[in-house]
Design a protein around this nucleic acid. Structure first.
Lengths: 338, 338
DNA sequence: GACTGGCACTCCGAGACCGGGAGTGCCAGA
DNA sequence: TCTGGCACTCCCGGTCTCGGAGTGCCAGTC
């Protein structure tokens, strides 16, 4: 494929994204200095359409990029637009002020949605990629304790549980020591095995309580709570009047469904740091007109994902730059707090 | 005002809510057996319009209730439609399965939005109406601890803090004993006074650490974290095609602004258990076409509010019944867990 | 005096119609 | 291989028309 044809494709994508209207050969000829006439561009356009990169809503209308066109643009044509120095500073400062993980996540998700003017989604550090930093048992009543788990990624999960027997203060301390001895520093992915044997290590009198504890621990580790997600900027969906006509409803619904969100964020967990999924590539019917830009983050290894979603007609270079920058800063912050 | 005129108003409200179209005299005459002709109803309508309860979008159109009309309907005409026995059972069962406060809140907000087909909002139990049940200090590193506060309403707040000096294990225990002695059982509203004197009660060597602790405690008590809110069912906004034309955007934005949400929920904290605010009564420009139905909940005393928001053209009797029922069940559950 | 049927009137909304403009494809010539 | 020209297509916005729904008013009835 010709170099100039690629330039024409880029011009179409860029103009369409900024004007939101089909772009014609004349517009391309005069807004982009390609050094050829509109007629020539028309020929190139015919070629691009034949090849499936653009398409015409109807005869005698301008052209619109197809998913395939966007894909090519993202892979080979989009020059990432780095954030301005001022933006970088602002991002850094805003994130550095966070006082704990919850705060980091809420700030991140807001930041992303403001920078990109899209809907932002941030997954909390995945439990099964975290390790136990500390377990605490708090006696609330003679036969009722609260189990608090703190991970090396800063997540704090807590659960209350009823014990089968009343425990003395010393007993609680002993159980606390036991679970910490066994689990501290261990990756949660390995936890189920360890937990399975937990009860047997306790003194006979404490076995029943220990196994109740073990059960709750297991639930906490593998349970529904596992994947938490924060969302912000839903209002930005209304920016893109045309595109959401039918799907706004279902997208809003999807944003409240953790399952769907995880599907969008998590698909490409390994591999390159940054992923773009365009339209049908999402594999979800309601997201056929939606593009998702995600990046992994974490101190060293990836512990979670964050991303942005919006119409396929989005500013890819800008969005990619923003997601990448924010993911990087967040990773740094987690690194420092480790 | 005539009895029949009230009946006409009710008919207009009910029909308008269900059809979403201006309702004319003829429709009222035949759908509701008022025993009079359309012409008579026209006269009543003229009266109701004069009095400001209904209005005409344009000459020769049917009538639409005004805010004042809805207000009268809610205050005097709407017979609450209690939930069906099946619904009540389902609500009860669903809520009873909750394992902790977070779970109660998320379940509640989902339930409300599903029952009413509107946007539901639930405020977490307000900290300054809760009392301290327990404070726990967890040593994470020699000079770093995590402070966990558990309230009698089941809320768990945690914060990490850096201490000015390294502490021995015993010192941590002593501080823990100290803050519990001082605060356990005390309402958080009284906490600031108590905390102010906290440092002085500690051994001289621990003073610095104690006052760092005190500062964090204060922040936690009065801070931004104070009012947390859960939202669900935003997708329901798209049901009401016409009404959100302009305001959908700003409503979605408002749903992410805790300040606005609290304003909507909290206005009438004392007084009757259930409040309805219609249109302008909300005092927020973007909510001029929105009605809010809220109820306080809590074990005995009110500790928080929950509610539902939707277009002024909503099914008030049904919504009121749902909100009231759910608030009641949630209160029961909190009572049991106390 | 309250209610009713009849009637003229208003006004919205859907559909039909039309013209301008933007964009195209193709072709002949440079 | 590129370009200017040209005929063609089709959307879009505006205007117009017409039917229908709903009203207000009035004269007549109980």
């Amino acid at each position: 494929m010709d170099d100039r044809k690629l330039e024409v494709l880029r011009a179409i994508v860029e103009d369409y994204v900024s004007t939101q209207e089909p772009v014609g050969s004349k517009a391309v000829a005069q807004r982009h200095a390609l050094g050829v006439s509109a007629a020539t561009i028309r020929n190139d356009m015919a070629f691009l359409e034949e090849a499936g990169y653009i398409h015409q809503p109807h005869t005698s209308a301008g052209r619109i990029p197809t998913d395939k066109g966007y894909r090519l643009f993202v892979d080979r044509l989009g020059k990432i637009k780095p954030l301005s120095a001022a933006e970088r500073r602002a991002v850094h400062r805003f994130l550095a002020e966070a006082i704990d993980l919850d705060d980091v996540v809420t700030r991140t998700v807001r930041l992303l949605s403001q920078l990109t003017h899209q809907v932002a989604v941030v997954q909390y550090p995945s439990l099964n990629r975290s390790a136990v930093r500390h377990l605490e048992l708090v006696a609330l009543a003679p036969a009722r304790v609260m189990l608090v788990m703190i991970t090396d990624t800063g997540r704090v999960e807590q659960r209350q549980l009823e014990l089968p027997a009343e425990l003395a203060e010393d007993d609680v301390l002993e159980l606390r020591r036991l679970i910490n001895e066994q689990l501290q520093g261990k990756p949660l992915a390995d936890a189920p095995r360890i937990i399975a044997d937990l009860a047997e290590l306790a003194r006979p009198e404490l076995r029943a309580s220990a196994s109740a504890l073990a059960r709750v621990l297991l639930e906490t580790v593998v349970s529904r709570t596992d994947e938490r997600v924060a969302v912000a900027g839903a209002a930005n969906l209304t920016r893109h009047t045309a595109y959401f006509a039918g799907s706004l409803r279902s997208i809003l619904e999807a944003l409240e469904e953790e399952v769907v969100l995880m599907q969008l964020l998590g698909r490409a967990d390994s591999g390159p740091m940054l992923t773009v999924r365009i339209g049908d590539e999402n594999g979800i019917d309601d997201f056929r007109e939606t593009a998702v830009v995600t990046a992994g983050y974490g101190p060293g290894a990836v512990v979670g994902h964050m991303g942005v979603l919006g119409p396929t007609r989005m500013d890819y270079p800008g969005t990619i730059a923003a997601v990448r920058a924010v993911a990087r800063y967040v990773s740094e912050i987690l690194e420092q707090n480790r």
